[in-house]
């Protein structure tokens, strides 16, 4: 399905990508289930919620969106509200946003999903310079049995970026965390991204990925689970989670209580699965010193998350000695920073 040319920002209108002084322009892209983050400099990030909401077209709805400054476009008789605007709109009308991606990959149940991703990417990306811009985008580790879906997901994005004129390559999300956060440790350690759709982990030694792992249970799972037991919409749960949750303090609210429970469950599940995966792996190198674990991603942001995770990790017989568990400096942008680094690699 092709979108009608009613996008508020056509590709031709976007500004031209800045080119570094030397070499090609480089862009890092974190295409997550929850958010898409674009980075063109280590401290310069642009982000949009990877979500949309469709409302039946009416003059009234169109005017209302315009009045509230919400980006939208008209698509097959519907008004699609994209990115951050979708959340605002959903919150206003107690609707659920629709997700172009699910469990880290293109959502097969969302027929307009990829179209939406393209539109969001067009908003975030600057037009490539003649001569080419390098772009690196993140991809998850394929959940068990979904390897072919990953191939499809990766190639669809790559094809689109190529159409836009970028020279693109992909990078595992866990490894992107390692690239971003473990430079001081010579890129040796475990990077974990707690995203919306899944958790991605990568054990790297000297930047070489030794073992990657993913768990299809992350922020969205927490939101939907809490939503089911509390009767609140998942969107509201997410807003609450991102704004007020403190895992280090006893819960004072019904939603918080449920969030505590599901956070703990997710952490335990991840630690158990990670431990099992590492124990069963024949690929573990013999490391002669403890390695760090870095946590990143929106789901890792609540206060007390790091401590909870560390306690859970240290309570298991994890097969590798861990020196520290730390939170990434900028958890929401860590993956994008890692992909940017990889994009700049060939410059």
């Amino acid at each position: 399905m092709k979108a009608e040319k009613e996008t508020p920002e056509s590709l031709e209108s976007v500004e031209t990508t800045c080119k570094p002084e030397n070499g090609l322009a480089a862009i890092g892209l974190d295409i997550g289930t929850s958010r898409i983050v674009c980075s063109q400099a280590p401290t310069e990030f642009k982000t949009q919620l990877n979500a949309f909401i469709g409302v039946a077209y009416s003059k009234f709805a169109e005017q209302m969106l315009q009045r509230n400054g919400i980006d939208f476009y008209r698509h097959n008789g519907e008004l699609f509200v994209l990115g951050d605007g979708a959340e605002k709109f959903a919150s206003m009308f107690n609707h659920e946003v629709r997700r172009p991606m699910s469990v880290g990959l293109l959502n097969p149940g969302e027929r307009d999903g990829f179209e939406v991703i393209q539109l969001i990417l067009r908003r975030l990306l600057k037009k490539p310079k003649p001569g080419g811009s390098k772009i690196c985008f993140s991809i998850p580790s394929a959940p068990c049995g979904m390897e072919t879906s990953l191939v499809y997901h990766e190639n669809m994005i790559k094809r689109f970026l190529t159409e836009l004129g970028f020279e693109s390559k992909s990078l595992n999300e866990g490894l992107a965390v390692v690239f971003s956060e473990l430079a001081n440790e010579n890129f040796s350690g475990i990077g974990i991204s707690f995203g919306g759709g899944m958790c991605n982990a990568c054990l790297a030694y000297l930047s070489i990925p030794i073992l990657t792992f993913s768990l299809g249970k992350a922020g969205d799972w927490i939101d939907s689970s809490v939503s089911v037991v509390t009767g609140e919409s998942a969107t509201r749960v997410r807003v609450r989670k991102e704004s007020a949750l403190d895992l280090s303090a006893p819960p004072s609210h019904k939603i918080d209580e449920a969030l505590h429970i599901y956070y703990e469950e997710m952490i335990l599940d991840l630690v158990r699965s990670l431990t099992r995966s590492f124990v069963e792996s024949r690929n573990l190198p013999t490391l002669d010193k403890p390695i760090p674990v870095v946590l990143s991603g929106g789901t890792s942001k609540p206060r007390g998350f790091r401590e909870k995770f560390e306690n859970a990790l240290r309570a298991t017989n994890f097969p590798l000695a861990i020196s520290e568990v730390r939170l990434a400096a900028d958890p929401l942008n860590t993956t994008a920073k890692g992909t940017l680094m990889y994009a700049m690699y060939d410059n």
């Binding site: 991809i139 580790s141 394929a142 990953l150 595992n172 000297l206 990925p209 990657t212 024949r282």
Partner: peptide, 28 residues
């Protein structure tokens, strides 16, 4: 990393393909 780039999850590097410890340590 070429193997990794080609097949991100199944073709991660085996430790046996890494340099011996001595060399790794020197690189480190």
């Amino acid at each position: 990393l070429s193997a990794f780039a080609a097949d991100h999850d199944t073709a991660v590097i085996k430790p046996s393909a890494l340099p011996p410890k001595e060399i790794s340590r020197l690189i480190e």
